[in-house]
Amino acid sequence: MQHNKDLTYLKNIATYLQKMLKFSDGLTLEEFRENEMAYDACVLNFINVAESFKLLSSSFKLKYPTIPYHKIMGLRNIAAHTYEGLDATILYETIKKDIPFLAVEINNILKNEQ
């Protein structure tokens, strides 16, 4: 039963990651900073990613230790608790450098687990 919940959370995570990539696609850092809708949408989706990761079972997290759970939660805490303090540069760089790799990893896990 927990396996099915984990798969549901992973599917949600994959969706949130794709939305972040879509909402920031083609934007420079400056454009991302100035585009309130894109920035806000990415913040919200990042928080959703982290919240979904938090719900994954311990056995799942042990099985897939390469996912940077603590880093994701750390940035989520900044985004959720100090919204004005979240540096757009950090979020943008995370989206451009880390999210594509995380999206591929999540999609690969989904293929292997189904």
Rank of each mutant, 00 (worst) to 15 (best):
K22N: 05
D25V: 04
K22E: 14
N77H: 12
H81M: 09
I78Q: 11
K111R: 15
I106A: 11
N112L: 10
V43S: 05
L110T: 04
D98L: 07
E93N: 13
H70P: 00
R33E: 15
Y39P: 03
I99L: 13
F101W: 09
I90K: 08
N108G: 06
D25C: 04
T89S: 11
L75C: 09
I47R: 10
Y69C: 02
N4H: 12
F46C: 03
G85P: 04
I47V: 14
E34R: 11
G26S: 03
E30Y: 05
N48Q: 14
M73L: 13
E84G: 06
P65M: 07
S24P: 00
M20H: 02
A80Q: 08
T8I: 14
L21P: 03
K19V: 09
N45D: 15
V49D: 11
A103L: 07
L7H: 06
A103F: 10
I90C: 02
R76N: 07
I47E: 15
T82I: 08
R33P: 00
Y9V: 00
I13H: 00
E84D: 11
S58L: 15
Y83H: 07
N108F: 08
P68G: 01
Y16T: 00
Y9M: 01
P65C: 00
F101M: 14
H81T: 10
S58E: 15
N35S: 12
G26T: 05
H70K: 14
N45L: 08
D6M: 03
E36W: 04
E51L: 11
Q114P: 01
L56R: 06
L91F: 13
D25H: 10
L55Q: 15
K96C: 10
K71H: 00
E34G: 12
T15H: 12
K5D: 10
N35L: 04
H3T: 03
E51V: 03
L10W: 00
E31V: 02
L17Q: 08
V49N: 09
E51G: 09
Y92D: 05
I72E: 06
F23E: 13
I90G: 10
Y39T: 02
E30F: 01
E36Q: 07
I72Y: 00
I109L: 04
P68E: 08
T66H: 15
L110Q: 13
E34D: 12
D98G: 01
E36K: 14
G26Y: 08
L110A: 14
Y39M: 13
